[in-house]
Design a protein around this nucleic acid. Structure first.
Lengths: 232, 232, 232, 232
DNA sequence: TATGAATGAGTATTCATTCAT
DNA sequence: CATGAATGAATACTCATTCAT
């Protein structure tokens, strides 16, 4: 987004001053400042003055772009969400190797969710959820929930293809996700782990998780196929 | 106030009367008030005045027992932990019916962790974790971690008894726990679910989770035993 | 915009276009917007942004025409005064029926002064008078005072015509006005009455007021005339 | 007030600390500061910080004694009202000389209402009435309205005694009051008069007002009595 | 020692005014 | 000249903490 702006600046496409609350550069600048402060201090402890200072804009300007503190926080989370879950589901488009696809997706998911940046954002949302429950709900709905739906769709497809045998696909999708995280989420969010898990660790966990998942849900057909391609 | 005091006062002015901030009854009284307020409102929104009122002690007294609001909150969480996870692990002492034991334990765990009260407390801890990371860490360590250890011990025992076949017991224990929660924790903590799951739902999830778990880890011996007892 | 302008622009770029703050149309436009906002919200609660919106001019332009908010308000009041008391005194031009003339005038006066709009304006002026005393003074001088002078002139004329017998015409004029308002002004300005008095009420008050006034000041000649015309 | 405190401190009559918001000395101190600021600047322009400074107490303390700015202002007005209208109606207890009583009462009323202090207070109330109409209403109700009722009672008594002949006592009471003020109130409240009228002026106005009033409402009996006592 | 009245720095938000465009 | 985005001082009010009683 910034890139595009920079580019248009070069071309001088921005004629005159942007309308109040409409300058995307300034908006981004405010959100960036807000991100630093909110992530660092949490919703309640973050003060609009801090954000003012961090963003390098005046108090009034923030209030032109955002109705109030809550809305600013929501906008930040909205952005964050987009960033976090972007490109995470593309890997689910391929069915050629089910196990490999699940591992690859699971690792991406696990790595993303437990990354320091994302954990902190989630911590802030959880903290704020107490006072603004809809905010947490919305975050979950448009983030984790959306991912869950993608996983469900993928599993359904695999069932149709005769690779998996699942009664409750919804539940199975949750099980899959949890098997990929296997304790990491709670450890991270409670600051028990202070740094993100290594890739090796994630691989170990996800490989095992997929194993468990397939032992429970794979069809004979899938296992036969796998044996065949392994011997090839 | 007791006759003996007069005498001992001469010898030791402190005896029989706790030093400042040392009376465990008053301390407990303060923590009890703090619990109600913190759980009800979250860390930031809870005011020391609320706690004062709820605990029935004066402002000054609280500050004799606890350096500040944060320290009081820490002390409360320290206590809370113990209470939440108490009695949860007793069911793991029985091995006569592995599947049944796992389901029973899993349901207890799932119900506890997703109960409104406990979710509230966890939300508050997560929110505060950002500012006081050790707090979350300690909470996790002495709560979830301890439970995890119990599960590990249980699984190890089952392995030794030839009922389960597990390479990485640590990981398997995490997998088991997560299978029992299957999405509930994240849904609850983000306020996506605003009320605790029903017992029926928990039963459905846990039964399926144990199923998956056993399909992955149960030995032939266990399955044979189960078939036998089923036909009996 | 008119064709002739194009020509004169060549000769004199300023011609036809008023200097800064000199265009009476724009000035009127601003005042009209200010009127709506100030009357509606009072001095303090009215925001320059509201006026900007209502007047359909930009912030900067207002500040070209008026030094600041206070000065704009003063200009508005200056105008308002004229509008409020316009046409109120015409009825005083007729002497054919003194009692009737007094009642008619008194009713117009009373209705005007206690009308919602005018009360609002007066309240705003009174409120602002504390900070800008000249403002209230000027309002009174060119409004109520001017009316008082008209009443005095009328009463003097009536005295000369032998209809009234008055020592202190100045005082009598005040008395007449007050008798026509009889408590209404204070009730309205203090918001004790939240809506303007009805015409019937005003008629009752004014009729009685004129009665009192004439009992005190009417000459024998006037009374005789009145009796005569009544019997006719 | 400060003196009293110093004195009682010497005598040590104030045992212990008064309860929060209960110390009448501090309350008076706050109201005194508020009076100065509110009277000087009007409701809106007065800031709680100003009052804090003027009263010599901390922000928090004010908010212990008064819920908010509005309530503080109301408390001040409540006080002011009491002070203003105190002892004003005692003179109405005597009927021995109706004219004299009316003049005496009218002069007290007129002097009071037009005194600088009272005018300023009324101006502040009128200004605030715009935003808080109930406030003005309450002021009127418990101040001017109460006075009006006393006048009505007095006039009714006079009617019963056969001294006056009045159809609408309510209206007559208003007429009497207005005749005593004869323009002064509006002149003062709009800052047209910047200082209170002299006693001589008030006497002139009230004497004339009572004259008009009695010419309109006095019975033959009263006039005969007066003539009699005059010749005596 | 316990109390709770007092403190004042801190909060989010508003709005008259300025000045680059 | 006109514009309206940006400014930041000012607002009412809160609350963790202190300290005289």
């Amino acid at each position: 987004m910034v890139d595009t702006t920079a580019e248009s600046d070069l071309l001088d496409l921005r004629k005159g001053r942007p309308a109040a609350g409409q300058d995307p550069v300034k908006r981004a600048q405010i959100i960036e400042g807000a991100r630093r402060v909110f992530i660092d201090k949490g919703f309640e402890a973050a003060s609009m003055n801090d954000i003012t200072r961090e963003a390098g804009v005046s108090k009034g300007t923030i209030y032109v772009y955002f109705e109030n503190k809550e809305e600013l926080f929501e906008a930040l989370i909205e952005e964050e969400r987009g960033t976090i879950f972007k490109n995470m589901y593309e890997v689910l488009d391929h069915f050629d190797d089910l196990r490999h696809t699940l591992v690859k997706f699971g690792m991406g998911l696990s790595a993303k969710i437990t990354s320091a940046k994302v954990i902190q954002a989630q911590r802030t949302v959880v903290g704020a959820s107490d006072r603004i429950p809809e905010l947490g709900a919305r975050f979950y709905e448009r983030g984790p929930k959306r991912g869950h739906d993608k996983v469900m769709a993928f599993l359904s497809e695999a069932v149709e293809r005769g690779l998996l045998q699942i009664d409750d696909v919804d539940l199975a999708a949750y099980q899959f996700t949890e098997l990929c995280l296997a304790g990491l989420f709670r450890q991270c969010i409670f600051s028990y782990r202070t740094k993100a898990p290594s890739l090796a660790e994630i691989e170990h966990i996800v490989t095992s998780g997929v194993d468990v998942f397939l032992k429970a849900y794979a069809t004979e057909k899938f296992l036969a196929d796998e044996r065949a391609s392994a011997s090839a």
